[in-house]
Amino acid sequence: MQANKQTFTSMIMKNPGSVAIFSVLALCASSVVLAQDTVCFESREGASRVTQKDLGEELKNVKCSDKTGAVLWWGDPFDGTQPMGEMPIEADYNHGEAVVKPRTGQLNLYPICGIACHNGAFPPPVEADTPPRKLTMHMDLVPDALDLQHGNGGIWCLDCHDAKTRNKFVDNAGNLIDFNQPQKLCGKCHGQVYRGWRDGIHGKRIGEWASTGKKRWFVCTECHNPHDVQQGERQSGFAQLAPEPAPILPKGLDNADHEKHGGH
C-alpha cells in the first residue's frame, strides 16, 4: 500500500499531463492519504526532497520543521539511497559502505530530456567556438545565461553539460558523467574541495560514524546550486535560507532588546 502510494506520487510529479487521468483514480483509491503526504527538503530548498513515511511503531523516516519544511531529524538515513557507483580514485568510499540519493529522481525534466527535446541530433550540436547567447528555454534555472552565476564569467553551459547528450555531464577528456555523480564533474575545477569531500571533511554524511561504517554521502548539487553558486554579491556557495525559530525568551521578558546594543 505504502509502496503503491509512493510510485503514484512520483509518477504525477514527473508527468503532470497524467494528473487528470490519475486524479479520478485517486479519488476512488487514496486521495485522503495523498493529501497527508509531507514532503520535506533536505539540505537546501529546490534540491533533494524526502517524503515522510511511517516505519511502524510510531517511527518516521524523517521529522520536519513546521516553520521551514526542512528535515530536522533522520529516523532512516538511508531512505531512497543506492550505492555510490564507481569512483576513479581510492578513498573513504572504498573502506565503508557508501550510498547516495540519486539526483535523477529529483529532477523533473530528466526522464524526458534525453528523448523529447535533446535527442542527440536535434537541436543541432553547437560548435566549440559558438559565442554564448541568451537562453530561450530553462530560464527558471538560468535566468541570464550571459551572466552565469558560476565561475565569474569564466565558464558556460557546455563546460559541464555534454554538447550532444544533454542528460549527461562531460569531463575534461570528453567522457560522459552521470547526473548521479556530479562530484566527478565538479572535481574538474574544484580539486581541493573534491579531495576534502573524499576524506569526509568537506560536505555532509549521515548514517554511521565509524570510518568503516555505512554512510549516505551528500553529493555536490544537493547543497550547492551549480547555476547560482556565486549568489550575486554574496559570492558564497550556499544560498541563504530561512532559519528555525529562536529559542523562547527567559521568563518575564517579552522581547530580546536586552541583547541588542545601542545604535542597532
Partner: peptide
Amino acid sequence: KGRYPACVEVCPVG
C-alpha cells in the same frame, strides 16, 4: 550504537 548524533545529520552545510 554507531549512529551519528542528530545535530550532525541535519546540518545543511556539513
